[in-house]
Design a protein around this nucleic acid. Structure first.
Lengths: 165, 165
DNA sequence: TTAATTGCAAATGGTTTGCAATATT
DNA sequence: AATATTGCAAACCATTTGCAATTAA
């Protein structure tokens, strides 16, 4: 639904390579198997690592390589990979559809400004976020791996028009 | 499910009073009516303004005052109030259950630390957030009304146990 | 052989919708 | 009278689950 092309985003770099190896390793640790289906799902997520994929998306992507794969298998695999810490559930909103993204650590923190009037979504990088995360780490002994930071309000235009400044 | 007592959180203060008035006003503007059912839903949300209420929660809360109210009505009302800007959809969660909270401006910013291992959700107040919001305001001309700040990672215990520190 | 995995189809569960009955302006 | 609103039940739809068949160790 949301996603267009399959192997879109190019080749896997160091991180993805490491991720794949870790996947195999962690599966083996628990006596689980890296089946063709699981491999296909992993490949799809890595190839589209800049996207937030739904189960339906993944099925669409691997339709060619694994035409007969069952939805349930994809659901189970995504859930499994998430529990293993390789994927994140990302909640980019509104509906009930679950989306996943690759769990690549050490990404630079950013946040979204979401206008309640016009719906504008602006992505903002703020170096203060690093300071904030450092402090959350040291003061709460919490190891941050990912974040979802959304600020709701009114963009310049809408704030002006609706007199909310 | 999530919520225990009904009129728990005490009397409405200035902000809630203002909110109720605004609700009536905005409804009238659009030729909509403040029915008993809508009033009951609003009351429930205001009385539990420190909670994130699901539809089921609301039904439970107003069971006494409006025993015969239909689920659909509550769903429709919550959705309506959200579109009017009086409620926020808050997505603190795993499941597909939609939760709402009162849209009270100028609340003190906080964020949630969510452990990917054990599921712990810790609410943290950080004064640095105010600085951050100030900066988002001045640098982006964005008027912040609410925020959803979630940091995912590993709590002290789990980080230790899984060797991710 | 034993245990994990899959695909299918049925079940689940929160949410939405069609519609006739009711209430409000 | 015209329109908004409600309650009910059915429909929806993403996700989960039971289970028998299949596959890998």
């Amino acid at each position: 639904m949301t996603v267009n092309t399959a192997q879109a985003s190019g080749t896997a770099d160091h991180k993805e390579q490491h991720l794949l190896e870790e996947a195999v390793e962690r599966l083996k640790e628990k006596g689980l198997r890296l089946t063709e289906q699981r491999q296909a799902v992993l490949d799809a997520v890595v190839a589209n690592r800049d996207q937030h994929l739904s189960c339906e998306d993944v099925v669409g992507i691997i339709k060619h390589s694994k035409p007969g794969i069952g939805q349930a298998t994809v659901y189970r695999t995504l859930s499994l990979l998430e529990k293993m810490g390789l994927l994140f559930k990302s909640d980019l909103d509104d509906d009930c559809v679950r989306h996943y993204e690759l769990c690549l650590q050490d990404e630079e923190a950013h946040c979204h400004l979401i206008c309640l009037e016009c719906g504008l979504v602006a992505e903002v990088k703020e170096d203060l976020l690093n300071t904030l995360e450092d402090r959350l780490h040291t003061k709460n002994d919490f190891v941050i791996v990912n974040r979802s930071l959304k600020f709701y309000g009114y963009c310049k235009q809408c704030a002006h028009q609706t007199g909310r400044e």
